[in-house]
């Protein structure tokens, strides 16, 4: 049985998809999510084999959601859409599939076959993941999307990952790894990422460590392990 997630904002379409997947008899629907953030959480915690992903999701669309998931956690993706098949075609690679709503059972069965083959042969899924441009942050009762250009640095500790912009601290569900690989941010410490555009100066200290002074006069530590890499990346 394939372990699957459905990410779809319309309640009827969600029910319909689950019904069809159950009818194939080869899929176990682990959870149905209504938006990208629920989806990211479910992917990170349930590790499904495949995600049936609607493209038109509120706030964060299907494509953008992909950029918020760690490469190693990324399941197989089947895009589902009512109309925008051209958008997918531009995006797709032979390895993935897409379904048009309303979905036909026979067509869905073919997709399941493809998926099973691909998983058995361990074929890589050549997804072109877009660059991450906005970081979701969950506040008291709403989600804000913060443009990465205004973020100064990112810090993680045992309570979670936080980014800092305009001297405010914001919580995000995304991991340092995702933020480090999908944005221009640079790793300078096990627990810190820095936005290179916000560096004012780098101060070197004894025993090959240092610290970064940001344009807003905050100081970010540089560990010995990352100092050399940082210097290389910045060309100094």
């Amino acid at each position: 049985m394939l372990k699957a997630l459905i990410i779809e904002d319309e309640i009827n379409a969600k029910g319909e998809m689950e019904l069809l997947l159950n009818e194939t008899g080869e899929v176990d629907v682990l959870r149905k999510c209504s938006n990208a953030l629920e989806g990211i959480k479910a992917i990170n915690s349930l590790h499904p084999d495949v995600v049936f992903l609607d493209i038109q999701l509120p706030v964060i669309n299907g494509f953008e959601m992909l950029s918020m998931i760690e490469e190693s956690n990324l399941p197989r993706i089947v895009f589902v859409t009512a109309y925008d098949e051209y958008a997918i075609k531009a995006f797709e690679n032979d390895a993935i599939d897409y379904l048009l709503k309303p979905v036909e059972l026979e067509r869905l069965k073919k997709t399941i076959e493809k998926l099973k083959n691909s998983i058995q042969n361990n074929n890589p899924q050549n997804l072109t993941i877009p660059e991450l441009r906005r970081i979701p942050s969950i506040g008291a009762n709403k989600i804000k999307l913060v443009d990465i250009d205004i973020i100064e640095y990112v810090h993680s500790n045992e309570t979670g990952v936080y980014f800092f912009c305009n001297n405010k601290k914001c919580f995000t569900e995304l991991t340092l790894k995702v933020l480090g690989s999908r944005t221009k941010f640079l790793r300078c410490h096990k627990q810190y990422l820095i936005n290179p555009d916000k560096i004012d100066e780098i101060q070197f200290e004894e025993n090959s460590t240092g610290r970064i002074k940001t344009v807003n006069n905050n100081f970010i530590p540089i560990s010995r392990h990352y100092l050399k890499k940082l210097k290389e990346r910045l060309g100094i």
Partner: peptide, 16 residues
């Protein structure tokens, strides 16, 4: 077209 396809999809799902 956008609205039409979304609508048809919804109706198919509800029909069941």
């Amino acid at each position: 077209p956008h609205f039409l396809f979304n609508a048809i999809n919804t109706i198919v799902a509800i029909n069941r």
